[in-house]
């Protein structure tokens, strides 16, 4: 990914840059809002990583200016806990995702990839397919190796989300946000329990597991672990 990082905290910027570069991404860094906006206007990036509060120009204002200019590069806003503004404001301003500091680096990486990677396309029949697992959005039928799998509505949504984001790491908070629509810290393994039930249904009777646990981060639906 080609990432533009706009962050005034030098230490945080160094750490983010190093992490992202080591994961194979290109990072351009601006340490204030004005420079950041200029850079975002001059070159095309895959994703913008913008701190909420910046010298010279506020993070939300940068996104607002870009969107007004017709620039739709996905943007992830970083904000410190304790700032009264909540993510609703950030998303209203045109941000695509929002992360509160301090965050796990793996969480950031997963969210950036989700913003950049295009969703898996459906096949001509309106189905998602990963290996021999097929989910049909029209008939709401799920099969693996032709065998019917019965899912509850929520499990169906979970699986649909995983299939749409095939090969991408999905974190627990992303799932709670996307599948349940809530943004809070459940502090427990409620999400994992849902995943393990889904996994039993789609993987248990088959030789090749598809739903993988990514240690310390989340889950991934993929043909290869």
């Amino acid at each position: 990914m080609n990432i533009l990082l706009i962050e005034d905290d030098r230490e945080a910027a160094d750490y983010l840059k190093r992490g992202l570069v080591e994961c194979g991404h290109q990072v351009t860094h601006a340490d204030n809002g004005d420079d950041g906006l200029q850079m975002a206007l001059q070159k095309t990036y895959d994703v913008l990583l913008i701190d909420r509060i910046l010298p010279r120009r506020d993070g939300l204002s940068i996104i607002g200016m870009l969107r007004a200019d017709g620039n739709l590069t996905p943007a992830l806003i970083l904000s410190a806990l304790g700032e009264v503004d909540d993510r609703v404001k950030g998303l209203k301003a045109g941000g695509d995702d929002y992360l509160v500091k301090p965050f796990a680096f793996s969480e950031l990486l997963a969210r950036l990839e989700a913003l950049v990677r295009r969703s898996q396309p459906r096949n001509s029949l309106g189905q998602y397919q990963v290996a021999d697992l097929v989910l049909d959005l029209n008939t709401h039928l799920v099969t693996r190796s032709g065998k019917r799998i019965r899912l509850r509505p929520r499990e169906f949504h979970l699986l649909e989300f995983f299939m749409r984001h095939k090969d991408q790491v999905i974190t627990r908070t992303m799932l709670l946000e996307q599948i349940w629509g809530y943004r809070f810290d459940p502090q427990t393994n409620v999400i994992d329990v849902h995943i393990s039930r889904l996994r039993i249904k789609i993987d248990k009777d088959f030789s090749k597991p598809l739903l993988h646990t990514v240690r310390g981060t989340g889950y991934k639906l993929s043909e290869t672990p």
Partner: peptide
């Protein structure tokens, strides 16, 4: 606020189950 109330119910339920 939906998220805050969700957090509150979640904490109470978590305790009850635990």
């Amino acid at each position: 606020n939906c998220d805050l109330l969700g957090q509150a119910i979640c904490n109470l339920l978590d305790n009850a189950i635990k």
